[in-house]
Design a protein around this nucleic acid. Structure first.
Lengths: 204, 204
DNA sequence: GTATTTTTAGACCAAATGTACTAATTTTTT
DNA sequence: AAAAAATTAGTACATTTGGTCTAAAAATAC
């Protein structure tokens, strides 16, 4: 029955988020899910298998999202929408970002996936930026590599806002999502043209 | 004898960096340091005590640094120098940033220290930015809170470049330090005036 | 309805870990 | 030099954890 597997993922996700991946044992997940230790191992032999399954869920959600947000009127609105929606999804699976190093250290295949995904996203941002420049929403580079550097900073922010939030924020999830979406979008603001800034203000 | 305590810190730092804090046991530290398990516990009863001691070392280094870098000619050069030096120190203690969440979860006092330090640093950046604006090296805010948002992004970057580097970089330490110093400084570039950009180019 | 496959639980094991206690040794104080 | 304090090692214990093996129970196929 699929029910057990799904329930296990939910329980694992909850415990990972609450206690941290390193502190959660397979036994505690099984107990919380109300099944035997050996039964859990039957479905997911190691903690890694649980993590990978959850990461796959995250990916599935992210892909589904991308289909949906393609209705934006302009690049800036699109960026706003997809960022906010993406951040919301990521936040649900935040244990992945909170314990990223611990997870990747024990999971080289996930590390590779991470690196590959990063390249895809970087390419996506390059395309979006080019589009914005063509539409005169963004200025041109002032030195070569300026936008590539921006993209790296964006990447780091995207990976890091959740751990940072864990340290400094409290309060409702929605507030947090909005705060970091805002902060994220702010990356682009100083590169925008007058025209771009007007569109930006409308979203804000 | 102080020798034992210092040697223990060094060994712990090395093992934490190599294997991750969660994976290192007190026994393995003792073994690597060539002393008995119970002796280690005599000096540092828990892993947390080791971590706090190492964090104190980091703070001491950082404070010592701040005394030294006050010879900069202008704010931009000063920022370059202190950033690079600060990043170099932080990198030595990178296990703190790599396993930050794991560490802070088990150590509420360190969490408080972290939050307090953050406020200090934010104030410092506000002052530096104000100075740069007064010197016409940086433009004024285009909307209220623009620079405060910038400072938050900077904070997140400062905490996150090491974990990110762990995922995506390889190669000599110095290269890494320079790369992320460069990326960090790039945060300011789009806010600089013509005059500021000239100083910026000279550093780069 | 029987056979087969999948799912589940229970018992057990070896390794590792934190912890406590005791005793020996070394260093410091007086 | 003797006493006191600090440092070090040894030992032993209870707990937890990942992992294996076996057998029962449930679901599915034939």
């Amino acid at each position: 029955m699929k029910k057990t597997k799904e329930s296990l993922l939910k329980v694992a996700q909850r415990l990972f988020t609450k206690q941290g991946v390193a502190e959660v044992s397979l036994r505690s997940i099984a107990a919380e899910a109300g099944i035997s230790h050996s039964n859990l191992i039957y479905h997911y032999p190691t903690k890694n298998d649980l993590i990978i399954a959850l990461h796959n869920e995250l990916l599935a959600n992210a892909i589904a999202l991308n289909q949906k947000v393609k209705v934006a009127v302009n690049p800036i609105e699109g960026l706003f929408l997809s960022t906010e929606a993406g951040f919301r999804i990521l936040y649900e699976f935040r244990f992945l970002m909170l314990d990223l190093n611990y997870i990747l250290r024990a999971n080289k295949s996930l590390l590779k996936t991470f690196r590959d995904l990063e390249k895809v996203r970087a390419g996506m941002y390059q395309a979006e930026i080019k589009k914005a420049v063509d539409l005169k929403l963004m200025r041109n580079e002032l030195y070569t590599g300026e936008f590539d550097e921006l993209i790296v900073r964006i990447k780091i922010f995207s990976e890091a806002w959740i751990p940072s939030s864990e340290i400094y924020d409290s309060g409702p999830v929605e507030k947090i999502i909005q705060k970091y979406t805002q902060l994220f979008m702010g990356f682009f603001f100083p590169y925008l043209t007058e025209k771009g800034r007007k569109l930006f203000e409308k979203q804000k």
